[in-house]
Design a protein around this nucleic acid. Structure first.
Lengths: 347, 347
DNA sequence: ACCTATTATGTAAACGTATACATTTTTAAA
DNA sequence: TTTAAAAATGTATACGTTTACATAATAGGT
């Protein structure tokens, strides 16, 4: 015997398929006696609805896909927790899609958007520059999309989003270093094309400029968001003829690489060089030295991003209007976390 | 105008829907002239196939779902890379499902298995104890499942799986500590119910026994696989009246917590106490001190686990046999990585 | 030009569910 | 009881594809 369908149940219970369907989807509509009979038949036939057929018929899946750059990134732990919480209360299932850097091409992202395998998409991964054109094509705006954490290029900025103010946060971080007496401050950014770390660099440079400090050529380098990349960048910075006394890394993982490289070169952190991170991943406080960094309200971001998305999903009906309204981003507060990797500079 | 279907394309191109379908799925079957005409129509109508309908009709999705305990765990980076590689060459898409400890109840895992939203499932997360009954029910054995890394309870052991020999690996780790002159060796395991860390504990105890060494009550504690848990456990161990001179942690993250706790208590690592990890996550080598640990061939595991799964998916046809054949696990080699967190014990 | 073998296309049914609408049964009021 | 209103159930269709089968077009020989 093959896999049982709703018909089998109907026959077994002596009712129509419509009634079985109602027992499953709106039990209050069917009389108790019938309901019991049907439920009994469901058990006996070991039936469970064919999700594929159901989703097809309904035209929706109750699934939200979260696109994440890399599953092994500790930064996403808390965000995902927030996403799960909110998704559960809203009745959605979460599936995660790994973008893995540039390995997820325009085709993939496009197919994700255009095929209705999900009711909505949460982008925690940068889609610039490759996917930008894709997403901005009107034709691909079929599925609601909300962007979390990431900064998007201007032509995508009308997507709803929730994130901290990265420019301001980086500025605060830099200001803190300056307040500790540092004047020669280096910066390690992530990927060249990433607008996210570009924003952080903007904040860094703004703070330096406003404090009347120079940013020497060679004080900023690319760390590719990886440990090895940051090690390489750190080596570059300390080999500079006039090396910085403090280094601001665009995320914590790079800070780890940076610190490791410094120590390996016999440089003490923070006594010789201070290091500042970004994100406050869970390893930050057990590092040696514990990392001074910027914390994002990850749980809150996760929750708000799905509430925002669900709102978007539910106001599909009036699709006639082709709502051109630019969604203003929801900005959540960041926070400076002072630990021990930054210390006062002794002149 | 609503969302275009294959019918619209057919009308526009002046052919039947069957031909359009063929142009999409087996272009070589249709004459070039027609093909071009249809492709033109597809472009003009901005059509893309409704995945829901297609999957429903085909009865399969070309999707593999990977169940992972937590997305923020660096251990899964490399495994996922392997999975992605293999999945791409096999023509499958990967979606990830976060189990998040015990938050994914039997219902969820069951629904995952029984609904055909995927063609197969890769379990990197332990399903013991809660999901065990679920999975072992014959009625739920509808979707091919392959287990990676994890150890399963005996009644699930007939699922295909690929992993290292955890018992042996833990034994090798412990033997290494013993070879360095340690006789008082502690152990921090993960979760009480986890068979995975139970295996590692088994290996640890076996090594101790075979070396004629005692394991004192109080030398082993639960670290819950988290930093905080490990800190707590470490505190427990060092407060013992006769504290160990080496601590073996069931994963690297706990080793980080352990080391942090030791240092905070003024204990030097490895001079006073040696610490050994497990997994060789990417942070292991930049820790201070760099962590001596056991490496798993993560990339290989990832690849083999999907090849195994695909094999399973493809031999569905002969379902009549209800293949009771117990699949023997594929065991891959582990490797001891010697760094600096373990040193010779001075008597 | 004719017939055959091959190739290309069209026709129509099916997949499993949900639901609008029609019909039957029940309930409650008179 | 009778009747109207309300509630429960049944009938039948649609969702968008794919595909077995039937039919039409082409090509290749004579």
């Amino acid at each position: 015997m093959s896999i049982p369908s709703i018909k089998d149940v109907a026959k077994l219970a002596g009712v129509s398929t419509a009634t079985v369907s109602r027992v499953i989807n709106s039990p209050e509509q069917v009389r108790e006696a019938t309901r019991l009979k049907v439920q009994e038949a469901i058990r006996n036939s070991d039936y469970s609805p064919n999700t594929l057929a159901r989703d097809f018929r309904r035209g929706s899946t109750n699934i939200i896909i979260v696109v994440v750059p890399k599953v092994g990134d500790p930064f996403f732990s808390a965000i995902m927790r927030g996403i799960r919480n909110a998704a559960r209360t809203e009745g959605y299932s979460i599936l995660i899609r790994e973008a893995a850097g540039s390995e997820m091409g325009p085709d993939e992202i496009s197919s994700l958007v255009v095929s209705r395998q999900a009711d909505g998409i949460i982008l925690l991964a940068s889609v610039s520059p490759f996917g930008t054109e894709i997403l901005s094509e009107r034709s691909n705006r079929r599925l609601p999309i909300v962007i979390g954490c990431e900064t998007m290029s201007p032509d995508l900025s009308d997507f709803p989003s929730v994130h901290i103010n990265n420019v301001l946060a980086a500025r605060d971080a830099t200001d803190y270093l300056i307040s500790q007496g540092h004047t020669k401050i280096g910066f390690i950014y992530g990927e060249k094309q990433s607008l996210l770390t570009a924003d952080r660099e903007l904040g860094y440079r703004a703070a330096m400029r406003d404090a009347g400090l120079d940013v020497e050529e060679g004080w900023v380098a690319e760390g590719r968001m990886t440990i090895q990349g940051a090690e390489h960048a750190a080596r570059h910075l300390i080999n500079h003829q006039n090396p910085p006394t403090a280094i601001f890394c665009a995320n914590d993982e790079m800070a780890m690489g940076c610190i490791h490289e410094l120590k390996s070169s016999g440089i003490r952190v923070p006594e010789d060089i201070s290091v500042m991170g970004f994100d406050d991943i869970r390893y930050a406080e057990v590092m040696d030295p514990p990392l001074t960094t910027i914390a994002q309200p990850a749980l809150e971001i996760g929750e708000r991003v799905v509430y925002r998305l669900v709102k978007e999903i539910n106001r599909k009906p009036e699709a006639g209007k082709e709502s051109k309204a630019i969604a203003k981003p929801e900005v959540v507060p960041h926070k400076l976390i002072v630990r021990s990797s930054v210390t006062k500079h002794r002149h």
